[in-house]
Design a protein around this nucleic acid. Sequence first.
DNA 1: TTCTCTACTGTGAACGCTCACAGATCGCCC
DNA 2: GGGCGATCTGTGAGCGTTCACAGTAGAGAA
Lengths: 345, 345
Amino acid sequence: MSRTGNSTPGRRRPPTIHDVAREAGVSRGTVSRVLNGGHYVSPAAQEAVNAAIRKTGYVVNRHARSLITGRSDSVAFLLTEPQERFFEDPNFSVLLRGCTQALAAHDITLLLMSASDEPERRRITRFLTGGHVDGVLLVSSHSGDPLATRLRKAGVPLVACGKPLVQSPGMAYVAADDRAGARDMVRHLLNSGRRRIATVTGPLDTPGGVDRLAGYREELAAAGLAADEELVVSGDYSRASGERAAAELLARAPDLDAVFVASDLMAQGVLAALRRAGRRVPQDVAVAGFDDSPAALAASPGLTTIRQPWERITAEMVRVLLAQIGGEQPSGVILPTELVIRESA
Amino acid sequence: MSRTGNSTPGRRRPPTIHDVAREAGVSRGTVSRVLNGGHYVSPAAQEAVNAAIRKTGYVVNRHARSLITGRSDSVAFLLTEPQERFFEDPNFSVLLRGCTQALAAHDITLLLMSASDEPERRRITRFLTGGHVDGVLLVSSHSGDPLATRLRKAGVPLVACGKPLVQSPGMAYVAADDRAGARDMVRHLLNSGRRRIATVTGPLDTPGGVDRLAGYREELAAAGLAADEELVVSGDYSRASGERAAAELLARAPDLDAVFVASDLMAQGVLAALRRAGRRVPQDVAVAGFDDSPAALAASPGLTTIRQPWERITAEMVRVLLAQIGGEQPSGVILPTELVIRESA
DNA sequence: TTCTCTACTGTGAACGCTCACAGATCGCCC
DNA sequence: GGGCGATCTGTGAGCGTTCACAGTAGAGAA
């Protein structure tokens, strides 16, 4: 039952850098140099090593490498909300996919972690500050997350998705321009003749909640319309909360002719509530969402919405994180949004 | 600019097992024993070490540990479809969440990898067979995946989600009982008086496609109804394919009074097509889905469907994988489904 | 007493890699 | 011819752990 033998069943001991060196007739050092960019290696040695690697099927042992370099070539993708929230959110999938791809291009593996309760948060803090990852991509809609603070204090490179509510200087982030997006949408509603425009905001302790509301107010003010607080209701980004909010709005202001909703998922709820109330969309009431998530396309009628540039967001998150790992200063990036017009408004 | 100093900015060198040993007044060996279960350690030493760990903030270096133990305490969550497919599929999120949690309970980290094209597949094969993970959770709707074969040949512990079409002996899997689920649903449709029951199947190179169709046929046969091939159309699990399939069915058999659809997402498409054709659901045509994904709840009317026991599936996948890593033989597990009745049927 | 067994502890040697350094060889310029 | 720089190569040390082993002490049996 020798574990080192080449018996067919089970894993045989993988080849090491020694085996490759012997096979190629060079030293460990030379093999290592080939593995790490091939500087100061003669073409002949280069070729011999590559052939030996192919022949032996050698794969570098990342643990041994990490042990000495102090880098792990992996980053954590960290969720800090109650998980249901995230997985329910279609944006999350897009984000995750984008990051996986962007990182794979750099040969960095993605560790998925989620911290919903306090014990988990502690466990994960220990893990992340223990040097097991080179950096962290933080996905948390609520800002001022205790985890973010702890990690930053420990000096772990970190990039948040979404603008932190409280602008702390050393905090890197990548976000869409929520305020400009909201203004674009409200302008679109105004241009199509709507005048009693209500809004369902996101949670007001999130940047998406605050900034989209701010954009809404600014654009109405710019159009010379008086602010009417009874047209503003808050939700929590869930479909159900959209439904509740719409019912509330209809009760408060039966004469509304448009609703700007801070997320597509909530907009689905709004559509359901309006349908139940017998209002036609868009004839009686225009409905506008935010995110351009799959939910927007699935809704009927198709949801007019604001597209967040997820591909660019993920690419930027990875870029900013790698730069930070490389020693650069953390930086914030804001990316433009795009108005997507469908049937609902 | 000393890296080892305790200067505030940047990361200071983390404490090692030596530091803990010195602090506790014992040897490395004793600290290591405490870390690994505490057998053969005196209560006094145990306590001293724990105190030292708390004081120094020590976290075990997993790379060093892995280097010697040959285990990495991590498993890969591997997607082998074109990514869009997965991320579009709401089940996927549920699966991912379940696995993350189940693994976290065992202090094992989850590496998310996706292999959509051949270069990526090769890169990932190298990575996985290189001993960087202890095992692989494979999520691939199409069976006979080349990756699965390669990994098994290399002796990497592996558990597939979904029953492999070709039953190869050493292949571990966890799946819902698709056939029984399909039979339950068709029986429900029959019991509610439907007689012209069409079906939209999944791809027929997937177990979900094959088995749900088999269950559909068996139950109709059991009820003494003649098989009618014009009532069977295939889709690819996408919403759009459901829409196309329903149009096709309406053209072929305008008198159909029920459609059993092999996924909720396709069922959404079917609902849309029926609506466009002016058929009322469920009055004119009953529609039944499969999966009980969020899409089923979001649909209007709410979709009657078959719930797959995702929590149990993920828990079983992790259990079977860990058993395999521990040296046990690979095994297959099939779990029962549940009929969920809503408005559509 | 002496031997054995159990509980506990410390120590050297790995694990597979990279890094720093010391040579070696060559061409080139003064 | 000597010195210098650039290119290339090999070697020892060490990263932070675990493992195997050797040892100690104390209890109980022969």
